[in-house]
Simulated assay, not measured.
Amino acid sequence: MTAYQTLLLDRADGVARLTLNRPDKLNSFTTEMHAELADALAVVAGDTAVRCLLLTGAGRGFCAGQDLGDRAVAPGAEAPNIGESLETRYNPMMRALKALQVPVVCAVNGVAAGAGANMALACDIVLAARSARFVQPFCRLGLVPDAGGTWTLPRLVGPARATALMMLGDAVTAEQAAQWGMIWRVVDDAALRDEAGALARHLATQPTRGLALIKTALAATWSNDLDAQLDLERDLQTVAGATDDYREGVRAFLDKRPPTFTGR
């Protein structure tokens, strides 16, 4: 396990388990946590043995967003440049997360608010405990949703729901999030850790390169027209068809046996 002050990073069986670890503060973001997240995501990206990332939070919440105590402003003092915080910390974090060439599973336990919610929703497959809540509280502070929220949420739930959630700051239950397509599935609180771990271990045995190419295709579909997407599918399929895992998949199908993928 890699030693951090605000995170836990454990790698085993092809899965990197990254746990936000400030439970007394609902795992809210600080400057220190951002620095450690940048390092941890770089470690995951550079480890060829990692074939899936599982992201979760310690304690009773996933992540409450920014720790406002880390941004406290004394009376009469100059206001902090929050845009600079996004440019140097939040935006690089989200780009690094989305750039990972492995599946990213998020297990949301308890509250996911603000940038914590948007970080969770940016993951590839999201499981939520039945007690989980997703909140966009920026409107209560006079701020704009960040960490990619204004890009991600409308694509998940549509513009009408995204607008209301961001302008009203209402909490969305795990069940409602699943019904609206914000997340993949709701599980009982006691089962979240085991089910998320089993899902991550399964993905770590799958054709990793092919899954990464699926991520590339899905990311492009929002800006491509049909012709461009068809061309992209052709190009990505050319890459996928040259992998060892494709050859193994075909051999296993013909041999009527389970495939053994290596991620190459």
Rank of each mutant, 00 (worst) to 15 (best):
V135A: 04
V157P: 03
L141A: 10
C139G: 02
P137S: 06
V144I: 15
P159D: 08
A164P: 01
R155M: 08
G149S: 06
A162K: 02
R155C: 07
F134S: 03
L153F: 13
V126Y: 08
I125M: 14
V126S: 00
D146W: 10
F134K: 04
A117E: 04
L143D: 09
G158M: 08
A132W: 15
G142T: 11
C139A: 09
A160I: 05
W151E: 13
P137K: 11
M119H: 00
T163S: 11
F134Y: 15
V157W: 08
V135S: 02
Q136R: 13
A160N: 09
A164G: 01
G148D: 01
L127W: 12
Q136C: 11
T152Y: 10
N118K: 01
P145S: 07
D146A: 11
D124S: 05
R161F: 06
D146K: 03
Q136E: 15
N118W: 02
M119K: 01
A147S: 05
L153M: 10
F134N: 01
V126I: 14
W151P: 00
A162D: 05
G149D: 09
P145F: 08
A129W: 13
W151K: 08
W151C: 02
A120D: 03
L127N: 05
A129G: 06
A129Y: 13
A120W: 07
R161D: 10
G116M: 03
A162R: 03
M119Q: 01
L156V: 04
L153Y: 10
F138R: 05
A147I: 14
G142W: 15
A164T: 10
A147V: 15
S131E: 14
V135C: 04
P154V: 05
L153P: 00
T152K: 06
C139K: 06
T152M: 10
A162Y: 09
G149L: 13
R155P: 01
A128L: 13
R140T: 12
F134T: 02
T152L: 12
G158H: 05
G149M: 11
V135E: 08
T163C: 12
L143M: 15
M119P: 02
W151G: 00
F138Y: 15
N118F: 01
I125D: 08
I125V: 15
P145I: 14
I125R: 14
R140Q: 14
N118H: 06
R130H: 14
P145Y: 09
A164F: 08
I125Y: 11
P145A: 08
A132L: 14
L141C: 09
R133E: 12
V126F: 10
S131Y: 12
A128G: 04
G149F: 09
D146Y: 12
V157M: 05
V135Y: 08
A128N: 04
T163W: 12
